[in-house]
Amino acid sequence: MNAKSTPADPAPLSPSPLEVDSLVKRFGSVMAVDGISLALHSGECLGLLGPNGAGKSTLIRSIVGRVTPDAGHVAVFGHEASSAAAREALGWVPQELALYPRLTCKENLTAFGQYQGLSSSQIGQSVAWCLEWAALQDRETDLARALSGGMKRRLNMAAGIIHRPKVVLMDEPTVGVDPQSRNRIFEMIEALRAEGTSIIYTTHYMEEAERLCDRVAIIDHGHIVALGTNAELVHNSFGSRSQVLARFEGPDERVAPWVAEHSGRLVDSMAEFTIEHPTEVAALLVSATAAGLELVDLSLRRPNLESVFLHLTGRELRD
């Protein structure tokens, strides 16, 4: 194993855990990342929220050096992303189950610890910590391929932080797991945050971003279209307005003209309206009745990140 080159660039005072500046990556004619800039604050969890193909994974892979950007710059605590210091500070949990299936949990963690340059004594301690963190102590001698889907995901996460990095990049770590395992993963992430680890968390699940992230960057077509806390994003898009969701009997073609007339949208046969005051609901219902539409279902809710995404991009998050 060879250590990669160590640059001599001195770290600036109190540098940000991670800074991405004008990053660009193109695959042929597809612009995967189009000039993204962001800064991760110390101890925060920054969510990257966007649909599949938005550029989240490419951004993460550019940060960990698995994709060579066409332009832009990435710094980890002020160090070049390719430097040994940056590698030491960065942990990466890829979306794939990047494990050795024929190795046990403990052997997997030991191997990745060695690849990260840990000493024997460090590996022993770190493997024990990671097994406990991932609640896999009683499965340490089980082969990775014999684990359940949720356990594999947890082991995958543990392998990414075996060297106890200060910055962790998690690329959709809950893909394909059941709700119970997902909650366990959330607890692991919260435990990591409690220790002061800075995290970038990519997801296309709005609920995950709302629960785990201090700030959220909404990404679409390689751009950050909005960045802020959950409340900021909602406020910036909707102010104090609320959303009315209404479903009517009959085909969309019959409902659509009336929805458009009231500045709403029809998404999956559901009419969506933004209102300033709840009293406006009554007026909408009267209008619908007058138009001969029969109401099936009605709800009033505060806008969420999905509403923000729809508002900003005109597309559903799961499109």
């Binding site: 060879n2 990669k4 990466w92 794939e96 990047a98 494990l99 050795y100 990414g160």
Partner: peptide, 24 residues
Amino acid sequence: DEAESGALDRVLSSRVTMTGLLAG
């Protein structure tokens, strides 16, 4: 197999270089 599973990417994101990996 490692390239397909993503383990290769993970290894190369650590301190192991491609030359070191192939030599090993």
